[in-house]
Each structure stands twice: as structure tokens, then as C-alpha cells.
Design a protein around this nucleic acid. Structure first.
Length: 490
RNA sequence: GAGCCAUUAGCUCAGUCGGUAGAGCACCUGACUUUUAAUCAGGGUGUCGCUGGUUCGAGUCCAGCAUGGCUCACCA
């Protein structure tokens, strides 16, 4: 068989030669179904009862130590790693030869007896050895592994082979999401799926990705949030719904932002934002407890106590506490701008009091919110889908949860007044017209749905990736995404 | 989008003052029947990210570009 040599280094050429030799010897290097009886961890955990028994395993060869007419190797399967002991006088010359020619990285099937070596290591004394997939590329070094961060993300398959801790993060991710699903299912929530391609990008303030449908001859937006669809389901009589799925936002990439990320959104009819705080506390603290067996977690050297209840702090009180500005004494836009400027912030001369309050909060308060804190009562200007406070119509029944100074959840009592909602959309459309491409678009059908009557409801969104970061002590969102977005190379 | 830093063998990394490109692992040949970063003897892998410039001479100095990391901006 011919192999293109131009872009192959010596190591890859050697492996292709071995591949040819296998075929010449009538050994198929890419096998089929393999019947295994045990996993590596099972043999180690149940050694007492398995000692002396015949077992069959499959996995990747990760190390080889030859000793002439015998040798050792390590086999890695999904559960872990186990040592193989191989002897020519047991395997026969042919199969022993197959073993000595096998490379680190090859996927093999083995049969043999469970035993313990003189040095005490539980091992398999091999009586049969077959090739299941010849590996044509050398793996990274056994001692240092794959460290190059770029390569780890671009070639996650290699990262997963050689860095066992990586897999643990994704097992944790799965467990966290499973805990959330179980909790919500047990509370009677229905998991639903709503469109990922939207004719109108709604439900959040964000720049969308635009795509094109050929036969409909129209632009579509990848969704920035499922919110408006889920609330249409409340109108339709689904009283408790949730969706865990991807959102897409055409914005910057950072250690906390990936263009596609996973959100939990849930809506509960006849509830309000106080109920959402309780659910948030349950979901996050239980996710931690089920994963780690404790609600006290350590994130980047910071001890964080997730045991409920968490502090609830109205935004104005938070600003008074951390920024020493009392916005209850500041009633107009001009005074608000002055106060912010005095505090050293750059101020948009057109910013309203509500925008300024949010600005001051983000700049001067957020960095202090390390322990879980619900910040409540957001200004209506920045909350176009939230119900107005009955006590003061300039604010809304909304909260955001902060942990480690990061926004982890956003929730509110849902605005179900179609006339107010239409006004809010109109204000957003004006902002759009004056250049704010993150302002919401008008969604007439959503207004129509509200006009039929939407029950009062609480709604909640939790950023799953950020929750997984917190609970796995991962510094970057890329560490909790199997395939984080990367620019193509060349 | 901006600033700083990085890019050398398959992997992990050295490379001094600008003067013939280095190590360990992996790999190849040989020895070795309980090793485990196996050991011992021998072998040497390369578009020094890319493109230009300065220079007798550039991995090294300069400029631009690419990719990545961190910080900031935007955001969740």
C-alpha cells in the first residue's frame, strides 16, 4: 500500500509501515465488535473475587515495558488503567510478536488471568492479544502529557486520552445537568424544545448571528434566548416548563464568553421572582451537593458557601453599601449622572437615572459580590420583559444572582401586561433605531400571545457553563466546553 | 476591537554576546521472562509560526501578519 510521504514525519511513516506489515501477515488492523467481560476499574476494585479468573478487556495501549521474551504494558479504558503482563511462552511467538510491534496508542483487545505481580500491582496475565485499531500518530509524552492549551482545545480527543482530569470535568458537567433535570422533573416541570432559528431575535439584549434559509428566501437569527417562546407556552396553558439548550450571541470571546453557550430557562405560572430565588438556591446548592457532597466549594482559592438561604439585597441598598451613593435621594437623570461622574465613572450624557444606577452597580458593586447574593429590584429601563414593582414603577420584580462577582442567574416576575410590554418594545425599537444593535426587536406575535392572557409567572435563567465552572473550579469557560470555539488555523 | 506575552523535533522544554540546531520522553536497532518515568548499548528526527528587512552571517535584532494565552472593552 502506498503512503503519501510528503507531510509525514518519521514516526508516522514507521507506523504506516507497521500497518502494511500487519496486512501482509493477514492481520486486520481495524477490527470489529469485541466482546469484553470487564472494565479496568472493576478488576482493581473486585480483585479478591476475580483473582485467577479469565477476563477480557479492550482499550488503548498507553505504556510498554519490554523485557525480552516477556513484557508489561498499560491498557486504558473508559474506567481507568490496568497493567498487562505478556509472556511469549503463553501467547506463542506470533501473537507475542504482535504485542512487541504494537505501538503506544493502539487500541487492542486482550484476554487473560487476573493476578498480582511481585511488586503488588494488579495485572492481567495475557493469553490472547488482538489489534482493534492501529494508531498512526504518536501520542504526547507520557510524563508531561499535552500542555499546550491551544492544542488541548483544538485536539480535544488527544487531550482526553492523555489528561485524565479533563474527562472528570465533563462527567461533572453531565452530573450537574442531570441533577437540575431531576429536580425540575420532580417539581412537575415539563422539559420542552423551542426553535433555535428565529425570524425575530428576542428575549435578551445581544447581537445575534444571522443565517439564511434558501427556499424560504429569508434571513433567520440563531436564538439569543428562548424566553419569548417559553412564555408563549405559558399562554398556551403549560404552567411549568423548562429548556436546557444552546444560545448564540455574536459578541466577544473571553474566559467567560463562548459564542454558543448553554442556558437553563424555566417558567412557572402563578409564581413570582421570590419563588425563583428559592428554586435557584435549590438548583445550585443541590448541584453542588450531589457533585461534591458539600455546599461549601472552593473556586480559584476563594471559599464559597452555597448553603441557602443567600443574601437578598435590593440594588439601591447594594449601591449605598458598597459605593456610598444613595439613589433614593437622587431623583432626576442629571443628578444621577453627576453622582456617577463624582464616583469616577465615565457617563453617557444621555443616560437615564435607571441606566446610571445599573452602571454604578456594575462598576462599583459587582466586584464585591463573592458569596452568593441576589441583587433585586432592577431599574425598568434595563428590564424590558420584567414586571414593574407595585411599590415604585421605576423598578421591576427582577433579580440577578452573583457568585464570585459573576452573574450566574437572571430572573423576574414576568411582565404579562400586553400594553405595557408593547410600550417597552417600542422604547427598545427606538434605541435600535438610534444605533443600539443590542436593543430588543418588536415581536408582534408575542404581544398577540400576551393579549390572549398570560398567567402571572416567575421566570429564571441560569448559565450552565458558568455554574459548571464554579463547581469544577475551572478558570475558563473553555475548560467546561468539549469543543470551545477556535479560529481555524490556516 | 486594544495592550502585554508566547510560538524551536511527534510531546515537554533549553538555546548565553548575532557565528554549523540541543536535551528528556517518544521512535529505530540490539540485549534482557515480575517491570512500572524499567534498565543497558548504539542511532538522530527540524520550513526555529509566516513574510519581509538589517547584517559578511538571524532561532537570536527590526517591521508586518497569523494563531494562542492573559488583561481590558462588549456581554451571560
Amino acid at each position: 500500500m502506498e503512503h503519501e510521504g510528503a507531510d509525514l514525519n518519521e514516526l508516522m511513516m514507521v507506523r504506516r509501515q507497521k500497518l502494511d506489515e500487519l496486512r501482509q501477515d493477514n492481520v486486520e488492523p481495524y477490527g470489529g465488535k469485541y466482546q469484553r467481560t470487564h472494565y479496568s476499574s472493576q478488576i482493581i476494585n473486585e480483585f479478591e473475587s476475580l483473582e485467577g479468573q479469565q477476563v477480557s478487556l479492550a482499550g488503548r495501549l498507553m505504556a510498554k515495558r519490554g523485557h525480552g521474551k516477556a513484557g508489561f504494558a498499560n491498557l486504558q479504558d473508559v474506567e481507568g488503567n490496568i497493567q498487562l503482563y505478556v509472556r511469549q511462552d503463553q501467547l506463542g511467538e506470533g501473537r507475542y510478536n504482535l504485542f512487541t510491534k504494537a505501538d503506544i496508542g493502539d487500541i487492542v483487545g486482550v484476554k487473560g488471568k487476573v493476578f498480582r505481580t511481585q511488586k503488588g500491582e494488579i495485572s492481567i496475565n495475557i493469553t490472547d492479544f488482538i489489534m482493534l485499531a492501529k494508531s498512526l500518530r504518536p501520542l504526547p509524552e507520557k510524563w508531561h502529557g499535552l500542555k499546550d492549551i491551544e492544542l488541548r482545545y483544538r485536539q480535544r480527543y488527544v487531550d482526553l486520552i492523555v489528561n485524565p482530569d479533563v474527562k472528570k470535568v465533563f462527567i461533572a458537567r453531565s452530573k450537574i445537568i442531570r441533577t437540575i433535570r431531576n429536580l425540575l422533573d420532580n417539581k412537575g416541570f415539563l422539559e420542552v424544545e423551542t426553535p433555535m432559528m428565529h425570524p425575530i431575535a428576542g428575549g435578551a439584549s445581544a447581537r445575534p448571528f444571522i443565517t439564511y434559509h434558501n427556499t424560504l428566501d429569508m434571513n433567520l437569527y440563531l436564538r439569543i434566548a428562548p424566553e419569548l417562546y417559553l412564555k408563549r407556552l405559558l399562554v398556551g396553558g403549560m404552567e411549568k416548563v423548562y429548556e436546557i439548550n444552546r444560545n448564540f450571541r455574536n459578541e466577544g470571546i473571553s474566559t467567560k464568553h463562548n459564542p454558543e453557550f448553554t442556558m437553563l430557562e424555566l417558567y412557572q405560572a402563578y409564581a413570582d421572582y421570590n419563588d425563583m430565588m428559592e428554586i435557584t438556591e435549590q438548583l445550585v446548592s443541590q448541584a453542588a451537593f450531589q457533585l461534591l457532597g458539600t455546599m461549601e466549594v472552593e473556586y480559584q482559592e476563594e471559599k464559597i458557601n452555597l448553603a441557602p438561604p443567600w443574601r437578598r439585597l435590593p440594588m439601591l441598598e447594594a449601591i449605598k453599601e458598597y459605593a456610598k451613593i444613595d439613589f433614593t435621594l437622587i431623583q432626576n437623570d442629571e443628578d444621577a449622572r453627576q453622582a456617577a461622574a463624582q464616583a469616577g465613572l465615565k457617563v453617557d450624557p444621555k443616560a437615564s437615572r435607571g441606566n446610571i444606577i445599573n452602571e454604578v452597580f456594575e462598576e462599583l458593586v459587582e466586584p464585591h459580590l463573592i458569596q452568593p447574593t441576589f441583587i433585586t429590584d432592577y431599574p425598568v429601563e434595563i428590564s424590558p420583559l420584567a414586571k414593574r414593582s407595585l411599590e415604585d414603577s421605576r423598578y421591576t420584580y427582577r433579580f440577578e444572582l452573583f457568585i464570585y462577582a459573576r452573574e450566574m442567574a437572571n430572573a423576574f416576575s414576568e411582565l404579562n401586561d400586553p400594553i405595557d410590554q408593547k410600550e417597552r418594545f417600542k422604547n427598545q425599537v427606538e434605541k435600535r433605531a438610534s444605533g443600539d444593535d443590542e436593543a430588543h426587536m418588536m415581536d408582534e406575535d408575542y404581544i398577540r400571545a400576551l393579549e390572549y392572557g398570560m398567567p402571572p409567572a416567575g421566570g429564571l435563567g441560569i448559565g450552565i457553563d458558568r455554574l459548571v465552572m464554579l463547581l469544577t473550579d475551572s478558570p475558563s469557560i473553555r475548560d467546561v466546553l468539549l469543543f470551545p470555539h477556535m479560529k481555524p488555523r490556516d
